[in-house]
Simulated scan of single mutants.
Amino acid sequence: MTRALVVDDSHFMRTVISDILEDGGIDVVDTAANGKQAVKKVEAVEPDVVTMDVEMPKMNGIEAVEAVMSRAPTPILMLSALTTEDADATLEAMERGAVDAFAKPGGTISTELSGHSDELVATVERVATADPTAGHGVEQTAPAESTSADEYVDHPTLLVGASTGGPNVVESILGSLPREADFRVLVVQHMPAQFTTRFANRLDDTSEYDIKEAEDGARISGGEGLVARGDYHMRVSGYSNGRLRVRLDQSERQHSVRPAIDVTMETAAERVTDPLVAVVLTGMGTDGADGVCSVKEAGGRTFAQDEETSAVFGIPQRAIETGCVDEVRPADRLTEAITDSIRRSS
C-alpha cells in the first residue's frame, strides 16, 4: 500500500485530502502543518509520497521541497491553488525537485476537491512511483558552436512530449537549443490547465526561442514555439513555406489525457513536409508511442530519454518498445542529439 504524508497549513484541507487518499486505498501515515514539520516527518516516517501545499507559514512549499530533496529525497506532489502566484511557485518547486502538480479546484481552502477524488488518488499513486532524483537539476551538454544557420537543414520542426517529471527536462532542452537551428517547436506537457501559461512563459524566459501557450489558429515560423494548452489537444492543421498552424479542441481524451502527445505528433507527421524531429521524455503511460512511429514513418528522426534520468520511464519505454526510436539518450544529451540530427553533414 502506498504511504503518504499530507502537508497543508489548513487543518480542514489536511482532513479532506487525508480522507480522499484513505478512501482511495492510500495509507496516510502522518500530516504536517508547515514545511518545517514536513521535512522532519519525511525523515521520521519515510513516506512513499508527499502532497505539499505551496503557501505555508514558517517554511513554504518551495523551501520544503528543497530541504526534503537535500536530506531525504522523496516523490513530492505539489497541491496548488488556482492563482498566478501559486502557479509560479509550483513551477519553481518542480524546478527544485517536486515531481508533479495538482490544482486545487475552488482555491486554497477548497470544498470542491472531493469532486476530483479519483483524479487526485491516481495522481498521488503515479507520483509515488517516480524516482525523485532522476533528471533533477539536469543541465544540457551545450551543442557545438554554430557559425551560421547554413549548418542546418531548412525549416525543421521539433516535437517534444513529456509527462510526470518532464518540466525540468523540457526547460533544459529548449534552454540549450541553438537559435541558429531555426526550429518550429511544439511542446506537449501533461500538466493542469492552470499551469501551462506560466510554463510557456518560463520556457520563453529561459530559451532563445519565442515560446507561447498555444491559441486556436496560432501560426509559428522558425525560432518560435507553442506549448499545448492544458485540457486541449493541439493539432497541426496546416503547413506551408515553413509556417505551421495549429488548432485546439476538446475532443475525447486519448490515453486518458488531454492534451495528448500522439495527437500533436500524428498530425504533424501528416502535415509537415520539411524535416521533423520528435523526442519523448519522462512520464507514465503509453502516450507518444504511436506519435513517434508516425514521425518515423514520415521520415523524421526520433529520440527518447533513457531510464536512468527519467523520473518515470513509462512513456519513453513504450515508445522504445515500438522499434521506432532512433536513439535513447540521457536527459543532458538530448539537445545534442536533436541538433545533430538536422545538421547538413549528418
Results as ranks from 00 to 15, higher is better:
11 H>C: 09
11 H>R: 07
13 M>P: 00
19 D>Y: 02
21 L>F: 10
24 G>F: 01
25 G>T: 13
27 D>E: 13
28 V>L: 08
30 D>H: 13
32 A>S: 11
33 A>Q: 13
35 G>F: 00
36 K>W: 02
39 V>C: 12
41 K>Y: 15
42 V>T: 15
42 V>L: 11
44 A>W: 14
49 V>K: 02
51 T>Q: 02
55 E>H: 03
55 E>G: 03
56 M>A: 14
58 K>D: 14
58 K>S: 14
60 N>G: 06
61 G>Q: 10
62 I>K: 01
63 E>R: 10
64 A>M: 10
69 M>R: 07
69 M>F: 07
70 S>G: 02
71 R>N: 13
73 P>E: 12
77 L>R: 00
78 M>E: 07
80 S>K: 07
80 S>Q: 14
81 A>D: 11
83 T>M: 12
88 D>T: 08
88 D>I: 14
90 T>Q: 04
90 T>F: 01
93 A>L: 04
95 E>A: 10
97 G>R: 01
99 V>S: 09
103 A>I: 14
103 A>M: 13
105 P>D: 09
114 S>H: 09
122 A>R: 08
126 R>F: 01
126 R>P: 01
132 P>E: 12
132 P>W: 10
134 A>Y: 02
141 T>D: 14
141 T>H: 07
142 A>M: 11
145 E>H: 05
148 S>E: 07
150 D>L: 06
152 Y>G: 03
161 G>L: 05
161 G>F: 00
161 G>V: 03
162 A>L: 08
163 S>Y: 02
166 G>A: 13
170 V>R: 09
171 E>M: 03
174 L>D: 00
175 G>S: 11
176 S>A: 15
186 L>D: 00
186 L>A: 10
191 M>K: 03
193 A>R: 00
195 F>W: 14
196 T>C: 08
198 R>M: 12
200 A>F: 03
202 R>S: 11
202 R>W: 08
202 R>H: 09
206 T>V: 15
206 T>H: 15
210 D>Q: 07
210 D>T: 12
216 D>S: 15
217 G>N: 13
220 I>L: 09
221 S>L: 02
225 G>N: 11
230 G>E: 11
231 D>T: 10
235 R>A: 15
235 R>G: 12
239 Y>E: 08
241 N>V: 03
243 R>A: 07
244 L>C: 04
247 R>H: 15
249 D>V: 02
257 V>S: 08
258 R>H: 08
258 R>C: 08
260 A>G: 07
265 M>L: 14
265 M>K: 01
266 E>G: 05
271 R>K: 15
273 T>M: 07
274 D>P: 01
276 L>A: 05
277 V>G: 04
277 V>D: 00
280 V>I: 14
283 G>R: 13
290 D>K: 14
291 G>V: 05
293 C>Y: 04
295 V>F: 04
296 K>T: 12
296 K>N: 09
297 E>S: 13
299 G>E: 10
300 G>H: 05
302 T>L: 04
304 A>T: 03
307 E>G: 03
311 A>W: 00
318 R>L: 09
319 A>R: 03
327 E>P: 04
330 P>E: 12
331 A>V: 03
338 I>R: 09
339 T>R: 09
340 D>V: 06
340 D>H: 13
342 I>M: 06
344 R>H: 05
345 S>D: 14
